[in-house]
Design a protein around this nucleic acid. Sequence first.
DNA 1: TTAGAATATTTCTATATAGAACAATATAAA
DNA 2: TTTATATTGTTCTATATAGAAATATTCTAA
Lengths: 146, 146
Amino acid sequence: METNGGFYITQIKQLQDRIFERLLAENGIEISGGQGRILFVLWKSAPLTISEISARTSLAKNTVSIVVDGMVSKGIVTRAINPSNRRQTMISLTKYAKSLQKKYETVSEQMTALFYQGFSKKEQEAFECFLARILDTLTNAEKEYK
Amino acid sequence: METNGGFYITQIKQLQDRIFERLLAENGIEISGGQGRILFVLWKSAPLTISEISARTSLAKNTVSIVVDGMVSKGIVTRAINPSNRRQTMISLTKYAKSLQKKYETVSEQMTALFYQGFSKKEQEAFECFLARILDTLTNAEKEYK
DNA sequence: TTAGAATATTTCTATATAGAACAATATAAA
DNA sequence: TTTATATTGTTCTATATAGAAATATTCTAA
């Protein structure tokens, strides 16, 4: 058997991005993939700093900074300097962003249903457990580099 | 249990890209991630058309066209019109590209070893089987759209 | 054989992504 | 307190990625 897990991951990522963006557009949600990932973590917990968003999305910090620029100009989030540590920028959700959450999650569930088409509950759990392990390995590997 | 396989996939993809590109650079291989994916399929079988590369990498056709531009100017591949169907562009490997294969594969194996750190042979196979199923589902889903 | 449909690729435009370098702030050490 | 170091975020530059539209070629049906 060939081992090309990394190649599979890349392919799946590309397909899922294209399909998910189309689903979002069809449902009138004007949020791009990159913005969606940041919103996903902010909906769980906000405000967050750029570094915290970076850690939770696995995006590079400068990438987060730039995608946040776009979200600010679209009225999705706001920037504010943290007075108790003026190096940090706190990113908060606007009312508009909060109003999008339910609709977004509905589309997200559709996407998950497609993604796991034909999977049993057990298979799905086993698969996500594998993913969590790999994510952990790679996260630690990158940390050790620094 | 939360289901966020898609989010895991995205995170793993980002980390693996950054780590793999660093490994390539450290080994003096001046190939970017996008170029690497195209080379990966060309090393298996060349020449290929833009559409064939697109199908095998799951990249959009216009993306392949543009990444190939960069590879041509770097002397990695060449373009040639297929005389028997002049709509098609055949992409071939240069000697330089062929000379890179072994080194690239060595780095690729290092990356795979890291990726599957702590996985048994059986776990690895089970995981790749899951990935193949999801890739199949998403590939078909996108086809049906068209 | 020709008009219309299908196929293959490229171009245009916009966002995503990250490395490197830089700027600002905070912390630790002397 | 000053200096060195670490942390946090942004800017600059370059490639990756893809949707929409444009172009060129081939196929099909009348």
